[in-house]
Measured scan of single mutants.
Amino acid sequence: MAAGGDHGSPDSYRSPLASRYASPEMCFVFSDRYKFRTWRQLWLWLAEAEQTLGLPITDEQIQEMKSNLENIDFKMAAEEEKRLRHDVMAHVHTFGHCCPKAAGIIHLGATSCYVGDNTDLIILRNALDLLLPKLARVISRLADFAKERASLPTLGFTHFQPAQLTTVGKRCCLWIQDLCMDLQNLKRVRDDLRFRGVKGTTGTQASFLQLFEGDDHKVEQLDKMVTEKAGFKRAFIITGQTYTRKVDIEVLSVLASLGASVHKICTDIRLLANLKEMEEPFEKQQIGSSAMPYKRNPMRSERCCSLARHLMTLVMDPLQTASVQWFERTLDDSANRRICLAEAFLTADTILNTLQNISEGLVVYPKVIERRIRQELPFMATENIIMAMVKAGGSRQDCHEKIRVLSQQAASVVKQEGGDNDLIERIQVDAYFSPIHSQLDHLLDPSSFTGRASQQVQRFLEEEVYPLLKPYESVMKVKAELCL
């Protein structure tokens, strides 16, 4: 049975990233139509530049190519590739079939990587351009969430054990800070992308030097003109047959890092959902379990974690691919890159769409948070109580021993009897502590235990987050809708 299948058929496997999760716009960027249309555009740009620099290419040939950029006979191309065992030459023939007058000058002087690699770089750039505003929107939604809850005390956790208090907004800023680093890295790697350009079979530009009869300047002009037509500021000066596969490492490393950030955020949300302090959106008709109707599973956060793990592992592909590119190139890269580049971007696209949807509907339960604080705060307040007693004339050592005994009794009630923490009640009825009984409410005010959390939130948002989001103001209103 021949390899390949009808990918629109229910009898043929289709990647869930495309069929179930990723956005239509990201799927289109990695589609065959987008790819092969870009090949034709690159052939047109090459012909236009070659004509401008004096090669015998007519206006009629150029116009014929322009008129057929979208006229792609995919069936013919597939048949040609089956016959020739070469995808680029299959599309040269297919393009030439609908451009008979231009057929002889299509791909003039070029090698397969002229269309293959340059198209990949265009796709990487455009895919990054799709991700950047999506990530900015996630940051914006979380920034709104953090600002609104900047002063809401909550129990902090280290080692997932109760620690000092923080605020809900401050905790959210930990998430935002990681995503801001990801946004900066995505922008950097996007701006650092260079075009492969017009380089020939081993990167020496020998074929173009021959076409222009040894004119170095025209060869350099050709490279520059096509690079500018493709919208790049610069091209690699040095290439082998391909652009260095280190570029793929750079791009997928940034995406993998984004995956790590999203995994951490969504894990926190899942843990908070278990504590009943916070939940992701839950639709009115949504079913959490087929057997347990009360369940409210954090399905979206779980999906993000599941896909983020996949995204983090994909960076190993370009690392290994770059390491086995012998001399000017081997074909070890080809099949692998067809999979890992598309999957990385479709996965990143999915987790950003999902995280935006989550961040637009996060639900906080202040009463649950308050109750958990009441359970733990008495123990945390013991040092403040000791200091207040010393100020009232008591002995630190005597007070410490009193607190120690009462704390152990209260802990026994919590752990052995399943009761509430009654340390404060014990202190309130103990005559030894009568000098500070009137101060206990103040000493137990949760806001006095959150330090500068709310001020940190305000400063972080104003100095770091809002300036970073400013270039994306025009796209901030787009909502994230999930079908599944």
Rank of each mutant, 00 (worst) to 15 (best):
L314R: 09
L258C: 10
R33E: 12
L209C: 07
R309L: 04
F449T: 02
L484K: 15
F195I: 14
M299F: 06
S253C: 12
H437V: 10
L155W: 02
D87V: 00
A322Y: 12
L331P: 00
D268P: 01
A206G: 14
T450Y: 06
L319N: 00
I339G: 04
K415T: 07
K101V: 11
L17G: 07
V368F: 03
P100N: 08
F345V: 10
T204K: 00
R372T: 05
S454L: 09
K199M: 02
E213I: 15
Q285N: 13
G231D: 11
N185P: 06
D87G: 02
M26E: 01
A480S: 15
T330Q: 01
K224D: 14
R40V: 04
C99L: 14
I269S: 03
E464W: 07
E213D: 07
V88W: 01
F28D: 08
R296E: 05
R404K: 14
Q408E: 14
L53M: 10
A230S: 08
D445N: 13
E383S: 02
L319I: 11
T382D: 02
A90S: 09
Q416R: 09
H310L: 09
T347K: 04
A235Y: 13
L440S: 05
E481Y: 09
P378M: 03
A273Q: 13
L275K: 03
L252K: 03
S395F: 06
H7M: 15
H107I: 04
E473P: 15
G156Q: 04
L275P: 02
S395R: 07
F195T: 06
A381H: 10
E277K: 01
M312P: 04
T242Y: 04
C266Q: 10
G169E: 02
D333W: 00
C340N: 15
V226F: 00
N421R: 04
A77K: 05
L443H: 04
I339E: 02
A348D: 03
H7K: 14
M292Y: 00
K264P: 04
F282W: 09
V92S: 08
L311Q: 07
D441V: 13
Y243F: 15
D59C: 14
L179C: 07
E383D: 03
V414M: 10
T111L: 00
F145I: 04
E228A: 09
E473Y: 15
I358T: 13
A322W: 12
S306N: 00
C266R: 02
Q241L: 02
G116R: 02
V475P: 15
D191Q: 08
S438H: 13
R149N: 09
R33S: 07
S112Y: 01
P16L: 14
S12T: 09
T52V: 10
L193P: 04
E220K: 07
E64G: 09
H86S: 00
K229N: 04
G393C: 07
Q241W: 02
L211T: 14
I139E: 04
A163D: 03
S289V: 01
D268N: 13
S407T: 07
M76C: 14
L155R: 01
E60K: 11
M316N: 10
E425I: 07
M76P: 07
W39H: 14
D6Y: 09
E277H: 04
L186H: 09
G259N: 00
C98Y: 15
Q210C: 05
A273T: 12
F282Q: 07
P16E: 06
L482F: 13
E463Q: 11
A348F: 03
R171W: 00
D317M: 12
Q164N: 08
T227G: 09
C172H: 05
I72C: 10
I358P: 01
V405E: 14
A146T: 06
F208R: 02
D248P: 03
E343G: 12
I287K: 01
W45E: 08
V475S: 14
V414Y: 04
L46C: 07
G419M: 15
H97P: 04
L152E: 09
R33M: 12
W175P: 00
A392F: 06
A291S: 04
I265A: 13
Q164P: 03
P162H: 09
E328A: 04
K470N: 13
L84T: 05
E80V: 08
A110L: 05
S151G: 11
P471L: 15
L311N: 00
V478E: 15
Q51M: 09
I269M: 06
M181F: 14
F208K: 04
N384L: 11
L128M: 11
D32G: 12
R125Y: 07
D333T: 04
I238W: 01
H437G: 07
S407R: 00
C172S: 11
M181Q: 10
S207A: 13
K479M: 14
W43P: 00
H91Y: 06
L311E: 01
Q221A: 13
D430Y: 06
E277R: 02
L443T: 03
V368Y: 05
D6F: 07
K199Q: 05
K295H: 02
K75F: 09
P281K: 07
R371T: 05
G418S: 03
A388M: 05
H97A: 12
I436K: 03
S23L: 05
R33K: 11
P293R: 00
C305D: 05
L142Y: 07
L222T: 05
H107E: 04
R149I: 03
L193T: 08
A102W: 00
I105V: 13
N71I: 09
L222P: 01
I339L: 11
A260P: 07
F145W: 10
L469H: 02
A90T: 13
K233P: 14
G418E: 01
T227L: 05
E80A: 14
V189P: 06
Y13V: 15
M299D: 04
L258I: 07
E328G: 05
R14L: 14
S253G: 12
F433D: 04
F28Y: 11
N336Q: 10
D191I: 12
L131C: 12
I287H: 06
V138N: 09
I176A: 08
T111H: 00
P446S: 06
L469W: 05
L155H: 04
L84N: 09
K295W: 03
A136F: 13
K367N: 14
